[in-house]
């Protein structure tokens, strides 16, 4: 089966994240989850499952932290 290339990817600012979970709930393709690890503030930060991001940016908008989420889009070849 041919592997599809994701349109984008998302990077969570682990030490900015407070583990509120709004991005996990909001993500349309459901590709975010809360990590089992704790960050240095004692929160379970969000993490990207690693595939399926569409770069829609919803997670960026629902995140209350300025540096919590960065969304990248794959540029057209």
């Amino acid at each position: 089966m041919e592997r599809t290339i994701d349109r984008g990817t998302v990077v969570i600012g682990i030490d900015e994240c407070k583990g509120c979970g709004l991005c996990v709930q909001a993500c349309p393709p459901r590709v975010l989850r809360l990590s089992a690890q704790l960050n240095r503030h004692g929160y379970h930060p969000a993490e990207y499952t690693g595939s399926g991001c569409t770069a829609c940016g919803i997670c960026y908008y629902v995140c209350p932290e300025p540096g919590g989420v960065t969304v990248f889009r794959r540029e057209a070849a």
Partner: peptide, 27 residues
């Protein structure tokens, strides 16, 4: 081949110099 489409706004200070025990990246 990836470009930032949504990220930290340049209208925010690079460092939140808010209090001694506050994380400089968090509100």
């Amino acid at each position: 081949d990836l470009a930032v489409v949504h990220g930290r706004s340049p209208s925010f200070y690079a460092v939140f110099d808010r209090k001694e025990d506050g994380d400089p990246g968090q509100t």
